[in-house]
Design a binder for these strands. Structure first.
Lengths: 129, 129
DNA sequence: TATGAGGGTTCCAGTCAGGGGAAGGTCAAG
DNA sequence: CTTGACCTTCCCCTGACTGGAACCCTCATA
């Protein structure tokens, strides 16, 4: 397969696939004309990466996950720990964003949103509380 | 005030303050020795920026917000619109993260986390569903 | 007077995960 | 033979800083 085929079959942009080769996540062969030549296993890896990235794992996490996946003697505890750490980061981000949303929501609620200059949002930002 | 003073009084790192000058958000004067020389109004602006950034506004949003703040004839509707758009982005991010959390949470729940290799997390990532 | 600590300055490079686009090689169809 | 769709490498760009090098300024102390 050429890169266009893997791209459409994996859903990943060609740029992303080249980048993943660049950082050593995949190692496709080359055809005589210099084109990348992907096997089914490469496609499988790319799909794996796409799903892991969609769950928010970092590239380095993905590298570790792939290594675990390929290691038949892995302990599921190692996978679970990585997932739990990632889950904790997600929870933290959610909490941060919710705090922003709550504060901002309150400010928006108090703002008339008309043609007058008086505005509690700016008032809060400027520190006049 | 020197940059160290504004840094501790605003809570922003000196690096960040220099960066804000670089991109034109503030324009402190200079002393004879070349040091930045901050007035109270600069400190006030930096505090404004710090609060806006803490609410997740982008730098460009902050630029707009500051301009609105300094424009006495602004309409609060403009501020409110900016805030509402930002709020919508926050909501979207929260929803994305919650979807990740839910999926990942399910996978983690199903993983024994022991010394055996069998792992539903890797199974899901590899597409064997 | 030297010197050392603790400010300050500029500039360059790196972060993360790719995206945009230029310049050029390859291949199948008309 | 040319056109158009692919493919290649290469370099710069993103946001919002952060780290570090190399150098300057000021003051207190030995």
């Amino acid at each position: 397969m050429n890169i266009g085929d893997v791209s459409s079959r994996s859903g990943l942009p060609a740029k992303t696939i080249r980048y993943y080769e660049d950082i050593g996540l995949i190692k496709p062969h080359r055809s005589a004309n210099g084109y990348r030549c992907f096997a089914e296993t490469d496609l499988h890896k790319l799909a794996f990466l796409g799903r892991a990235r969609a769950l928010g794992f970092t590239i380095e996490d993905c590298r570790t996950l792939m290594a675990l996946y390929e290691d038949e003697s892995r302990a599921s505890a190692d996978v679970k720990q990585l997932a739990l750490e990632h889950l904790a980061k997600i929870e933290e981000k959610i909490a941060d964003l919710q705090a922003m949303r709550d504060t901002l929501g309150e400010l928006v609620k108090g703002c008339a949103g008309d043609s007058r200059p008086d505005c509690p949002i700016l008032k809060d930002l400027s520190g006049e509380v």
